[in-house]
Nucleic acid binder design. Structure first.
Lengths: 230, 230
DNA sequence: TCAAAAGTGTTCTGTTTACACCCATGG
DNA sequence: CCATGGGTGTAAACAGAACACTTTTGA
Protein backbone atom coordinates (compact mmCIF):
# COMPACT_ATOMS: atom_id res chain seq x y z
CA UNK A 1 0.00 0.00 0.00
CA UNK A 2 2.68 2.56 0.91
CA UNK A 3 5.67 0.81 -0.52
CA UNK A 4 7.94 3.81 -0.64
CA UNK A 5 7.20 5.25 2.76
CA UNK A 6 10.40 4.17 4.49
CA UNK A 7 12.50 3.84 1.35
CA UNK A 8 15.52 5.75 2.51
CA UNK A 9 15.94 3.90 5.81
CA UNK A 10 18.73 1.39 6.50
CA UNK A 11 17.99 -2.32 6.44
CA UNK A 12 19.98 -4.66 8.63
CA UNK A 13 20.51 -8.30 9.45
CA UNK A 14 18.56 -9.59 12.41
CA UNK A 15 19.58 -12.74 14.21
CA UNK A 16 18.24 -14.78 17.09
CA UNK A 17 20.43 -16.60 19.59
CA UNK A 18 19.07 -19.21 21.97
CA UNK A 19 20.34 -19.78 25.47
CA UNK A 20 19.08 -23.25 26.31
CA UNK A 21 19.54 -24.25 29.92
CA UNK A 22 19.02 -27.89 30.80
CA UNK A 23 18.90 -29.63 34.11
CA UNK A 24 19.43 -33.21 35.10
CA UNK A 25 20.53 -34.95 38.27
CA UNK A 26 23.92 -33.34 38.12
CA UNK A 27 22.83 -29.74 37.89
CA UNK A 28 22.40 -26.94 35.41
CA UNK A 29 23.72 -27.32 31.88
CA UNK A 30 23.87 -25.20 28.78
CA UNK A 31 23.54 -26.25 25.15
CA UNK A 32 26.27 -24.97 22.83
CA UNK A 33 27.30 -25.64 19.24
CA UNK A 34 30.66 -25.61 17.55
CA UNK A 35 30.35 -23.13 14.70
CA UNK A 36 30.87 -24.70 11.30
CA UNK A 37 31.11 -21.48 9.30
CA UNK A 38 33.09 -18.27 9.33
CA UNK A 39 33.70 -16.07 11.18
CA UNK A 40 34.94 -17.80 14.32
CA UNK A 41 34.52 -21.23 12.74
CA UNK A 42 35.33 -24.00 15.19
CA UNK A 43 34.59 -21.92 18.28
CA UNK A 44 31.72 -22.53 20.68
CA UNK A 45 28.63 -20.46 20.31
CA UNK A 46 24.98 -20.25 21.25
CA UNK A 47 22.51 -21.78 18.86
CA UNK A 48 21.59 -19.04 16.44
CA UNK A 49 20.35 -18.05 13.02
CA UNK A 50 18.87 -15.22 11.02
CA UNK A 51 15.36 -13.86 11.06
CA UNK A 52 13.57 -14.33 7.75
CA UNK A 53 11.15 -11.88 6.13
CA UNK A 54 8.14 -14.09 6.66
CA UNK A 55 8.44 -15.01 10.33
CA UNK A 56 8.42 -13.17 13.64
CA UNK A 57 11.17 -13.44 16.26
CA UNK A 58 9.48 -16.13 18.33
CA UNK A 59 9.06 -18.23 15.22
CA UNK A 60 12.65 -17.70 14.19
CA UNK A 61 13.91 -18.78 17.62
CA UNK A 62 11.74 -21.89 17.47
CA UNK A 63 12.87 -22.73 13.95
CA UNK A 64 16.55 -22.19 14.68
CA UNK A 65 16.41 -24.39 17.76
CA UNK A 66 14.54 -27.08 15.89
CA UNK A 67 16.87 -27.05 12.90
CA UNK A 68 20.02 -27.34 14.93
CA UNK A 69 18.88 -29.79 17.59
CA UNK A 70 15.61 -31.37 16.56
CA UNK A 71 14.05 -29.93 19.74
CA UNK A 72 10.39 -28.98 19.34
CA UNK A 73 7.66 -27.47 21.47
CA UNK A 74 10.09 -25.74 23.77
CA UNK A 75 8.76 -22.68 25.54
CA UNK A 76 11.20 -19.83 24.96
CA UNK A 77 11.19 -16.35 26.29
CA UNK A 78 12.65 -13.26 24.70
CA UNK A 79 15.56 -11.88 26.69
CA UNK A 80 17.20 -8.84 25.15
CA UNK A 81 18.32 -7.29 21.85
CA UNK A 82 22.08 -6.91 21.37
CA UNK A 83 23.20 -4.28 18.91
CA UNK A 84 26.81 -3.24 19.44
CA UNK A 85 28.10 -2.19 16.05
CA UNK A 86 30.98 -4.64 15.80
CA UNK A 87 29.48 -7.50 17.76
CA UNK A 88 29.74 -9.71 14.66
CA UNK A 89 32.95 -8.87 12.81
CA UNK A 90 31.65 -10.21 9.50
CA UNK A 91 28.68 -7.91 9.13
CA UNK A 92 26.50 -5.59 11.16
CA UNK A 93 23.95 -7.82 12.87
CA UNK A 94 21.47 -7.14 15.62
CA UNK A 95 20.72 -10.22 17.66
CA UNK A 96 17.70 -10.89 19.81
CA UNK A 97 18.46 -13.44 22.51
CA UNK A 98 15.93 -16.03 23.70
CA UNK A 99 16.20 -18.40 26.60
CA UNK A 100 14.61 -21.62 27.79
CA UNK A 101 15.04 -24.14 30.55
CA UNK A 102 14.35 -27.77 29.74
CA UNK A 103 14.63 -31.16 31.32
CA UNK A 104 17.59 -32.87 29.65
CA UNK A 105 16.23 -36.38 30.12
CA UNK A 106 12.82 -35.79 28.57
CA UNK A 107 14.19 -33.99 25.53
CA UNK A 108 16.53 -36.42 23.83
CA UNK A 109 17.37 -35.11 20.44
CA UNK A 110 18.61 -36.12 17.09
CA UNK A 111 20.83 -33.75 15.19
CA UNK A 112 23.13 -33.11 18.05
CA UNK A 113 26.04 -35.00 16.52
CA UNK A 114 25.78 -33.45 13.06
CA UNK A 115 25.85 -29.98 14.38
CA UNK A 116 28.44 -30.58 17.04
CA UNK A 117 26.09 -29.44 19.76
CA UNK A 118 26.83 -30.42 23.35
CA UNK A 119 25.52 -29.98 26.82
CA UNK A 120 28.06 -28.31 29.05
CA UNK A 121 28.05 -28.15 32.76
CA UNK A 122 27.20 -24.49 33.31
CA UNK A 123 30.19 -23.94 35.53
CA UNK A 124 32.57 -25.56 33.05
CA UNK A 125 31.25 -24.03 29.83
CA UNK A 126 33.86 -22.75 27.38
CA UNK A 127 34.33 -19.18 26.30
CA UNK A 128 31.86 -18.16 23.61
CA UNK A 129 32.10 -16.04 20.50
CA UNK A 130 30.96 -12.44 20.08
CA UNK A 131 28.85 -11.19 22.98
CA UNK A 132 27.42 -14.62 23.77
CA UNK A 133 28.99 -14.78 27.23
CA UNK A 134 27.18 -11.59 28.11
CA UNK A 135 23.92 -13.08 26.86
CA UNK A 136 24.37 -16.14 29.05
CA UNK A 137 25.01 -13.99 32.11
CA UNK A 138 21.86 -12.00 31.49
CA UNK A 139 19.84 -15.15 30.91
CA UNK A 140 21.09 -16.61 34.17
CA UNK A 141 20.15 -13.50 36.07
CA UNK A 142 16.68 -13.63 34.52
CA UNK A 143 16.31 -17.30 35.31
CA UNK A 144 17.22 -16.63 38.96
CA UNK A 145 14.71 -13.84 39.20
CA UNK A 146 12.04 -16.02 37.64
CA UNK A 147 12.84 -18.83 39.99
CA UNK A 148 12.62 -16.56 43.02
CA UNK A 149 9.32 -15.03 42.14
CA UNK A 150 7.34 -17.83 40.58
CA UNK A 151 7.39 -21.58 40.84
CA UNK A 152 9.29 -21.63 37.52
CA UNK A 153 6.44 -21.77 35.07
CA UNK A 154 5.50 -25.30 34.30
CA UNK A 155 6.51 -24.48 30.74
CA UNK A 156 10.03 -24.78 31.99
CA UNK A 157 9.63 -28.09 33.79
CA UNK A 158 9.15 -31.75 32.85
CA UNK A 159 5.60 -32.91 33.28
CA UNK A 160 6.13 -34.98 36.39
CA UNK A 161 8.75 -34.39 39.01
CA UNK A 162 9.47 -35.04 42.64
CA UNK A 163 9.84 -32.39 45.31
CA UNK A 164 13.47 -33.37 45.66
CA UNK A 165 14.06 -32.79 41.96
CA UNK A 166 12.31 -29.45 42.10
CA UNK A 167 14.40 -28.49 45.08
CA UNK A 168 17.59 -29.64 43.36
CA UNK A 169 16.64 -27.52 40.36
CA UNK A 170 16.14 -24.48 42.57
CA UNK A 171 19.41 -25.16 44.30
CA UNK A 172 21.30 -25.24 40.99
CA UNK A 173 19.62 -22.13 39.69
CA UNK A 174 20.16 -20.13 42.84
CA UNK A 175 23.47 -21.81 43.51
CA UNK A 176 22.73 -22.33 47.19
CA UNK A 177 21.32 -24.99 49.47
CA UNK A 178 17.76 -24.80 50.68
CA UNK A 179 16.09 -26.38 53.68
CA UNK A 180 13.82 -29.15 52.47
CA UNK A 181 11.05 -28.61 55.02
CA UNK A 182 10.83 -24.91 54.34
CA UNK A 183 11.02 -25.50 50.64
CA UNK A 184 8.16 -27.99 50.61
CA UNK A 185 6.07 -25.80 52.88
CA UNK A 186 6.46 -22.81 50.60
CA UNK A 187 5.74 -24.76 47.46
CA UNK A 188 2.66 -26.30 49.01
CA UNK A 189 1.46 -22.94 50.25
CA UNK A 190 1.45 -21.75 46.64
CA UNK A 191 -1.13 -24.39 45.86
CA UNK A 192 -0.31 -24.90 42.20
CA UNK A 193 0.92 -28.48 42.31
CA UNK A 194 -1.05 -31.67 42.11
CA UNK A 195 0.34 -34.60 44.08
CA UNK A 196 0.09 -37.82 42.09
CA UNK A 197 -0.30 -41.34 43.39
CA UNK A 198 2.80 -42.44 41.53
CA UNK A 199 6.23 -42.58 43.01
CA UNK A 200 9.60 -42.22 41.39
CA UNK A 201 11.59 -45.22 42.61
CA UNK A 202 14.83 -44.39 40.88
CA UNK A 203 16.44 -42.36 43.59
CA UNK A 204 15.67 -44.20 46.81
CA UNK A 205 14.18 -47.37 48.28
CA UNK A 206 11.26 -45.57 49.80
CA UNK A 207 10.47 -43.78 46.56
CA UNK A 208 9.42 -40.19 46.19
CA UNK A 209 5.99 -38.92 45.23
CA UNK A 210 5.56 -37.30 41.84
CA UNK A 211 3.89 -33.95 41.35
CA UNK A 212 2.48 -32.14 38.37
CA UNK A 213 1.80 -28.46 37.78
CA UNK A 214 -1.86 -27.54 37.77
CA UNK A 215 -1.88 -25.23 34.77
CA UNK A 216 -5.33 -23.83 35.48
CA UNK A 217 -4.69 -22.90 39.10
CA UNK A 218 -1.32 -21.53 38.09
CA UNK A 219 -2.66 -19.26 35.38
CA UNK A 220 -5.52 -18.04 37.52
CA UNK A 221 -3.06 -17.05 40.24
CA UNK A 222 -0.69 -15.36 37.83
CA UNK A 223 -3.58 -13.35 36.40
CA UNK A 224 -4.73 -12.36 39.88
CA UNK A 225 -1.26 -10.95 40.38
CA UNK A 226 -0.48 -13.49 43.08
CA UNK A 227 3.10 -13.00 44.07
CA UNK A 228 5.02 -16.19 44.68
CA UNK A 229 8.34 -16.03 46.41
CA UNK A 230 10.85 -18.72 47.24
CA UNK B 1 36.81 -9.08 6.11
CA UNK B 2 34.14 -11.69 5.32
CA UNK B 3 31.80 -9.55 3.32
CA UNK B 4 29.90 -12.33 1.68
CA UNK B 5 29.41 -14.57 4.66
CA UNK B 6 25.74 -13.78 5.26
CA UNK B 7 24.93 -12.63 1.73
CA UNK B 8 21.78 -14.60 1.21
CA UNK B 9 20.08 -13.54 4.45
CA UNK B 10 17.13 -11.14 4.61
CA UNK B 11 17.66 -7.58 5.72
CA UNK B 12 14.91 -5.72 7.50
CA UNK B 13 13.93 -2.36 8.90
CA UNK B 14 14.59 -1.90 12.60
CA UNK B 15 12.83 0.78 14.58
CA UNK B 16 12.92 2.01 18.15
CA UNK B 17 9.88 3.29 20.02
CA UNK B 18 10.14 5.21 23.27
CA UNK B 19 7.64 4.99 26.09
CA UNK B 20 8.35 8.11 28.12
CA UNK B 21 6.54 8.25 31.43
CA UNK B 22 6.53 11.54 33.23
CA UNK B 23 5.37 12.46 36.68
CA UNK B 24 4.36 15.71 38.23
CA UNK B 25 2.10 16.73 41.08
CA UNK B 26 -0.92 15.37 39.30
CA UNK B 27 0.32 11.86 38.66
CA UNK B 28 1.74 9.71 35.92
CA UNK B 29 1.80 10.97 32.36
CA UNK B 30 2.90 9.64 29.02
CA UNK B 31 4.51 11.51 26.13
CA UNK B 32 2.90 10.94 22.73
CA UNK B 33 3.24 12.47 19.27
CA UNK B 34 0.76 12.99 16.49
CA UNK B 35 2.23 11.24 13.47
CA UNK B 36 2.94 13.59 10.60
CA UNK B 37 3.61 10.95 7.95
CA UNK B 38 1.90 7.92 6.47
CA UNK B 39 0.74 5.36 7.40
CA UNK B 40 -1.65 6.37 10.18
CA UNK B 41 -0.81 10.06 9.71
CA UNK B 42 -2.61 12.21 12.28
CA UNK B 43 -2.99 9.43 14.83
CA UNK B 44 -1.25 9.34 18.20
CA UNK B 45 1.85 7.26 18.52
CA UNK B 46 4.88 6.66 20.68
CA UNK B 47 7.99 8.58 19.81
CA UNK B 48 9.86 6.46 17.33
CA UNK B 49 12.32 6.25 14.48
CA UNK B 50 14.56 3.91 12.56
CA UNK B 51 17.86 2.41 13.57
CA UNK B 52 20.73 3.57 11.38
CA UNK B 53 23.68 1.45 10.25
CA UNK B 54 26.19 3.34 12.35
CA UNK B 55 24.51 3.38 15.76
CA UNK B 56 23.37 0.83 18.31
CA UNK B 57 19.85 0.58 19.69
CA UNK B 58 20.52 2.63 22.82
CA UNK B 59 21.97 5.39 20.68
CA UNK B 60 19.03 5.27 18.30
CA UNK B 61 16.56 5.57 21.17
CA UNK B 62 18.47 8.52 22.58
CA UNK B 63 18.70 10.21 19.20
CA UNK B 64 15.04 9.71 18.36
CA UNK B 65 13.92 11.11 21.69
CA UNK B 66 16.23 14.07 21.36
CA UNK B 67 15.19 14.85 17.80
CA UNK B 68 11.50 14.80 18.53
CA UNK B 69 11.47 16.50 21.92
CA UNK B 70 14.82 18.12 22.58
CA UNK B 71 15.14 15.91 25.67
CA UNK B 72 18.72 14.90 26.46
CA UNK B 73 20.53 12.78 29.02
CA UNK B 74 17.50 10.68 29.76
CA UNK B 75 18.21 7.24 31.11
CA UNK B 76 16.30 4.72 29.02
CA UNK B 77 15.96 1.03 29.43
CA UNK B 78 15.35 -1.52 26.70
CA UNK B 79 11.97 -3.20 27.08
CA UNK B 80 11.16 -5.71 24.36
CA UNK B 81 11.42 -6.38 20.62
CA UNK B 82 8.13 -6.46 18.71
CA UNK B 83 8.13 -8.38 15.47
CA UNK B 84 4.64 -9.35 14.34
CA UNK B 85 4.74 -9.52 10.57
CA UNK B 86 2.06 -6.94 9.88
CA UNK B 87 2.59 -4.70 12.85
CA UNK B 88 3.39 -1.82 10.50
CA UNK B 89 1.15 -2.03 7.45
CA UNK B 90 3.51 -0.02 5.27
CA UNK B 91 6.49 -2.30 5.49
CA UNK B 92 7.88 -5.13 7.58
CA UNK B 93 9.51 -3.48 10.59
CA UNK B 94 10.82 -4.89 13.83
CA UNK B 95 10.61 -2.43 16.66
CA UNK B 96 12.59 -2.42 19.88
CA UNK B 97 10.77 -0.55 22.63
CA UNK B 98 12.55 1.55 25.24
CA UNK B 99 11.12 3.18 28.31
CA UNK B 100 12.02 5.97 30.70
CA UNK B 101 10.49 7.77 33.63
CA UNK B 102 11.25 11.45 34.05
CA UNK B 103 10.25 14.37 36.18
CA UNK B 104 8.09 16.58 33.98
CA UNK B 105 9.02 19.81 35.72
CA UNK B 106 12.79 19.41 35.46
CA UNK B 107 12.71 18.45 31.79
CA UNK B 108 11.09 21.32 29.99
CA UNK B 109 11.59 20.90 26.30
CA UNK B 110 11.64 22.74 23.07
CA UNK B 111 10.40 20.99 19.99
CA UNK B 112 7.20 19.82 21.55
CA UNK B 113 5.02 22.15 19.52
CA UNK B 114 6.61 21.44 16.14
CA UNK B 115 6.20 17.78 16.48
CA UNK B 116 2.77 17.84 18.04
CA UNK B 117 4.00 15.98 21.09
CA UNK B 118 1.93 16.12 24.27
CA UNK B 119 1.88 14.81 27.77
CA UNK B 120 -1.24 12.80 28.42
CA UNK B 121 -2.60 11.76 31.73
CA UNK B 122 -1.84 8.05 31.68
CA UNK B 123 -5.42 7.14 32.42
CA UNK B 124 -6.77 9.41 29.70
CA UNK B 125 -4.28 8.60 26.94
CA UNK B 126 -5.74 8.06 23.47
CA UNK B 127 -5.60 4.87 21.49
CA UNK B 128 -2.28 4.40 19.74
CA UNK B 129 -1.25 3.08 16.35
CA UNK B 130 0.12 -0.38 15.57
CA UNK B 131 1.06 -2.36 18.66
CA UNK B 132 1.94 0.71 20.70
CA UNK B 133 -0.81 0.13 23.26
CA UNK B 134 0.68 -3.25 23.98
CA UNK B 135 4.11 -1.66 24.41
CA UNK B 136 2.73 0.81 26.93
CA UNK B 137 1.10 -1.96 28.93
CA UNK B 138 4.33 -3.90 29.09
CA UNK B 139 6.29 -0.80 30.06
CA UNK B 140 3.84 -0.09 32.86
CA UNK B 141 4.15 -3.61 34.18
CA UNK B 142 7.93 -3.28 34.11
CA UNK B 143 7.82 0.07 35.84
CA UNK B 144 5.63 -1.38 38.60
CA UNK B 145 7.95 -4.29 39.10
CA UNK B 146 10.94 -1.97 39.21
CA UNK B 147 9.20 0.26 41.70
CA UNK B 148 8.32 -2.66 43.96
CA UNK B 149 11.76 -4.18 44.02
CA UNK B 150 14.08 -1.21 44.01
CA UNK B 151 13.80 2.34 45.15
CA UNK B 152 13.25 3.34 41.50
CA UNK B 153 16.83 3.82 40.41
CA UNK B 154 17.88 7.39 40.85
CA UNK B 155 18.27 7.40 37.08
CA UNK B 156 14.52 7.61 36.99
CA UNK B 157 14.14 10.41 39.52
CA UNK B 158 14.80 14.15 39.61
CA UNK B 159 17.89 15.04 41.59
CA UNK B 160 16.17 16.41 44.67
CA UNK B 161 12.78 15.39 45.94
CA UNK B 162 10.72 15.25 49.09
CA UNK B 163 9.47 12.10 50.73
CA UNK B 164 5.94 13.16 49.93
CA UNK B 165 6.81 13.47 46.23
CA UNK B 166 8.49 10.09 46.26
CA UNK B 167 5.46 8.59 47.93
CA UNK B 168 3.11 10.28 45.48
CA UNK B 169 5.19 8.84 42.63
CA UNK B 170 4.94 5.36 44.10
CA UNK B 171 1.23 5.79 44.60
CA UNK B 172 0.72 6.73 40.95
CA UNK B 173 2.88 3.92 39.68
CA UNK B 174 1.28 1.29 41.85
CA UNK B 175 -2.11 2.95 41.60
CA UNK B 176 -2.82 2.58 45.32
CA UNK B 177 -2.45 4.57 48.50
CA UNK B 178 0.42 3.91 50.87
CA UNK B 179 0.79 4.66 54.56
CA UNK B 180 3.25 7.52 54.95
CA UNK B 181 4.88 6.27 58.13
CA UNK B 182 5.47 2.81 56.77
CA UNK B 183 6.66 4.23 53.49
CA UNK B 184 9.22 6.50 55.10
CA UNK B 185 10.41 3.75 57.42
CA UNK B 186 11.00 1.39 54.53
CA UNK B 187 12.76 3.95 52.41
CA UNK B 188 14.98 4.92 55.32
CA UNK B 189 15.75 1.28 56.09
CA UNK B 190 17.15 0.96 52.58
CA UNK B 191 19.74 3.56 53.45
CA UNK B 192 20.33 4.94 49.97
CA UNK B 193 19.02 8.46 50.44
CA UNK B 194 20.81 11.50 51.73
CA UNK B 195 18.70 13.98 53.66
CA UNK B 196 19.56 17.55 52.70
CA UNK B 197 19.32 20.65 54.84
CA UNK B 198 17.09 22.32 52.27
CA UNK B 199 13.34 22.31 52.38
CA UNK B 200 10.84 22.53 49.59
CA UNK B 201 8.43 25.26 50.66
CA UNK B 202 6.09 25.06 47.70
CA UNK B 203 3.66 22.52 49.05
CA UNK B 204 3.10 23.54 52.67
CA UNK B 205 3.77 26.19 55.27
CA UNK B 206 5.96 23.93 57.31
CA UNK B 207 8.01 22.89 54.29
CA UNK B 208 9.27 19.43 53.48
CA UNK B 209 12.87 18.22 53.60
CA UNK B 210 14.57 17.41 50.34
CA UNK B 211 16.43 14.17 49.75
CA UNK B 212 18.92 13.00 47.16
CA UNK B 213 19.90 9.50 46.06
CA UNK B 214 23.33 8.43 47.17
CA UNK B 215 24.51 6.82 43.95
CA UNK B 216 27.52 5.14 45.55
CA UNK B 217 25.61 3.46 48.35
CA UNK B 218 22.92 2.49 45.90
CA UNK B 219 25.26 0.84 43.43
CA UNK B 220 27.17 -0.96 46.13
CA UNK B 221 23.92 -2.42 47.44
CA UNK B 222 22.67 -3.40 44.02
CA UNK B 223 25.98 -5.18 43.33
CA UNK B 224 25.79 -6.99 46.65
CA UNK B 225 22.43 -8.28 45.49
CA UNK B 226 20.61 -6.38 48.21
CA UNK B 227 16.93 -6.91 47.68
CA UNK B 228 14.79 -3.87 48.21
CA UNK B 229 11.07 -4.21 48.49
CA UNK B 230 8.37 -1.61 48.92
C1' DT C 1 -4.95 31.63 65.97
C1' DC C 2 -5.94 28.39 62.77
C1' DA C 3 -5.57 25.73 58.56
C1' DA C 4 -2.70 22.64 56.01
C1' DA C 5 0.71 19.56 55.30
C1' DA C 6 4.96 17.35 57.65
C1' DG C 7 6.85 14.45 60.76
C1' DT C 8 7.23 10.72 64.08
C1' DG C 9 6.83 5.10 67.12
C1' DT C 10 4.55 1.28 68.80
C1' DT C 11 1.83 -2.76 68.76
C1' DC C 12 0.12 -6.54 66.34
C1' DT C 13 0.12 -9.99 62.91
C1' DG C 14 1.85 -12.96 59.54
C1' DT C 15 5.86 -14.79 57.26
C1' DT C 16 10.36 -16.66 57.20
C1' DT C 17 13.95 -19.17 59.22
C1' DA C 18 16.20 -22.68 61.94
C1' DC C 19 16.21 -27.04 63.43
C1' DA C 20 15.94 -33.15 64.35
C1' DC C 21 13.66 -37.28 64.20
C1' DC C 22 10.87 -41.19 62.32
C1' DC C 23 9.39 -43.75 57.94
C1' DA C 24 9.44 -46.95 54.12
C1' DT C 25 11.81 -49.92 51.31
C1' DG C 26 15.20 -52.95 48.73
C1' DG C 27 19.04 -55.34 49.20
C1' DC D 1 18.09 -55.75 59.73
C1' DC D 2 20.19 -51.85 58.17
C1' DA D 3 21.48 -48.18 54.96
C1' DT D 4 19.49 -44.70 52.17
C1' DG D 5 16.91 -41.00 50.99
C1' DG D 6 11.83 -39.26 51.96
C1' DG D 7 8.80 -37.13 54.75
C1' DT D 8 7.04 -34.26 58.56
C1' DG D 9 6.06 -29.82 62.70
C1' DT D 10 7.22 -26.30 65.97
C1' DA D 11 9.31 -22.40 68.17
C1' DA D 12 11.90 -18.09 67.67
C1' DA D 13 13.07 -14.07 64.90
C1' DC D 14 11.90 -10.81 61.76
C1' DA D 15 9.39 -8.01 58.58
C1' DG D 16 5.05 -5.87 57.19
C1' DA D 17 0.71 -3.61 58.33
C1' DA D 18 -2.28 -0.80 61.08
C1' DC D 19 -2.79 3.04 63.52
C1' DA D 20 -3.22 9.00 65.82
C1' DC D 21 -1.23 12.75 67.51
C1' DT D 22 2.13 16.76 67.59
C1' DT D 23 4.85 20.26 64.92
C1' DT D 24 5.63 24.18 61.98
C1' DT D 25 4.52 28.33 59.91
C1' DG D 26 2.24 31.57 56.63
C1' DA D 27 -1.87 33.86 56.11
Amino acid sequence: MHHNTYQQEDKLLLAVDCIIFGFDKKGLKILLVKRNFEPEKGKWSLIGGFLKKDENLDEAATRVLHTLTGLKDIYMEQLYAYSKIDRDPAERTISVAYFALIDVASHQFEGLQDEDAHWFDLKKAPDLIFDHNEMVQKALARLRRRALNWPIGFELLPEKFTMRQLQALYESILDKRLDKRNFINKINAMDVLEKLDEKDMSSSRKGSFLYRFDADKYHVKVKEGFSFRI
